[in-house]
Design a protein around this nucleic acid. Structure first.
Lengths: 243, 243
DNA sequence: ACATGCAAGTCTTATAGAAGACTATAGCTA
DNA sequence: TAGCTATAGTCTTCTATAAGACTTGCATGT
């Protein structure tokens, strides 16, 4: 079957091609790390010129969904577990070196009904099923951050039945569910340590901690995750690059 | 005089054109808000095709240095004072509305010799002349942030002789000195209020505050400013969008 | 071990035409 | 005549196509 773009469609050809290619990446037709067809093949399939196919792929590359390598081909971006540890992890030591957090005690996912706060953050109906994961991550021997992760159950079928989840969640999301996180909005405030979370971080009440409230978005602006991190930043800092 | 690109240069033509256009923007030949020549004129000047001129301008647009408007032309980006209030200002109320800070008491710039810390942050020689500005900015009636701003004196000739500086510094930097800030790196940590800065924010010791350490960079990666902001975020938060 | 050639990919440049935005003007209406 | 509207013209960026150059990796021969 020859897929073809629609000349009656008012949108430019390259935008139509882009959309179809994007759907294939999202649908798992081309998996992360795989080579997609070359520019001439894409052009031939849609009956457009190589330049037009190239422009469509260009827009995907600009969005960071594919990587081009001259002389080799174009690959769907692959977020290795090591990558995912850093992408969207914004804590660095004061000497500038990145912190590699670990979770010695893996979190256990638990299904429940969304609280109003959770429903608002994830934009799901109140009382809808969500999955909660709570864990403390360490920088070496020292407790660094206490995380509470909330996921819409409908987007992660079967996850709540797993007994253990890996250190790098986003990698699991991509491989097992095809959910690619493209953006995250973080709200940061300073708070004082108190109660059980302070205990789990091993600090006394009154110590200043960083409270990070993050909502992560997928390709279609779906809300894929709500995560609240409470960080004890001894000799470290939160880093942001503004452009 | 006909400026022309060099075909012996191994770099692509569009990259050479881009560089010359960029130099003109930096040099103030085309000022912020001004229209640059159209694609055909640029092409004619450098003896390349319109498509090549277009690609050169495309790269400038991708870097946010110019904006294109179909049917009208291409403009050098203009950061109006109103824009500058928001660009690089990351504090929002918890309802999501942006905070418009004001400086009822304008800061007074004072020249001095760089401390080792200042020299390191700005990457200037120890003891070199710097300009310091200290001020408290308000959100309505409430003190919001205490700022300490350090500038390399050599980049801002005559600034230390001004008695007053405006609320939106970056706008002044652009108009008076041609310094365009394209990026800023921020390091964020939670701290406890204490001493004179707590006084100037009108809070008691022990209240949690946000400490933001920012270095701003120009087009050539020069360090244009070091700024330390101590924020009292009652009902507000620091916002970051990760991509 | 090294050089050479080839195949498969992306990258660069050029050209033509389409589409958007503004301006001036002709023509209509009260 | 004053004022509005449609329209043509012009200037600009945007889209599409085609052709050749450059890069990379591999196979092959010496």
């Amino acid at each position: 079957m020859t897929v073809s773009v629609n000349t009656a469609d008012p949108r430019p050809l390259y935008a139509q091609v882009r959309e179809i290619l994007l759907a294939r990446i999202k649908g798992g037709h081309w998996k992360p790390g795989e080579l997609i067809p070359n520019e001439f093949d894409v052009a031939a399939e849609f009956n457009v010129s190589q330049g037009t196919a190239r422009k469509a792929i260009d827009t995907l590359a600009a969005d960071g969904l594919v990587v081009r390598r001259q002389g080799k081909g174009t690959y769907v971006v692959e977020h290795t577990p090591a990558d995912m540890l850093f992408r969207f992890f914004q804590l660095y030591r004061d000497d500038g070196s990145p912190i590699k957090p670990s979770s010695p005690i893996p979190g256990r996912p638990i299904r429940g009904a969304a609280t109003p706060q959770e429903a608002a953050a994830l934009e799901v109906g109140a009382g809808e099923a969500v999955i909660r994961i709570e864990r403390t991550r360490f920088a070496g021997e020292r407790p660094l951050v206490h995380e509470t992760i909330i996921l819409p159950d409908v987007l992660y079928p079967g996850l709540a039945d797993h007994s253990e989840i890996p250190n790098t969640l986003y990698d699991l999301f991509q491989r097992a569910y095809g959910h690619i996180i493209v953006r995250a909005d973080e709200r940061v405030t300073p708070i004082l340590a108190h109660g059980p979370i302070a205990r789990s971080l091993g600090v006394d009440d009154g110590i200043p901690l960083l409270h990070i409230d993050r909502v992560s978005f997928g390709l279609d602006e779906q809300r894929l995750e709500w995560r609240v991190s409470i960080c004890h930043l001894a000799g470290a800092h939160y880093f942001a690059r503004l452009k």
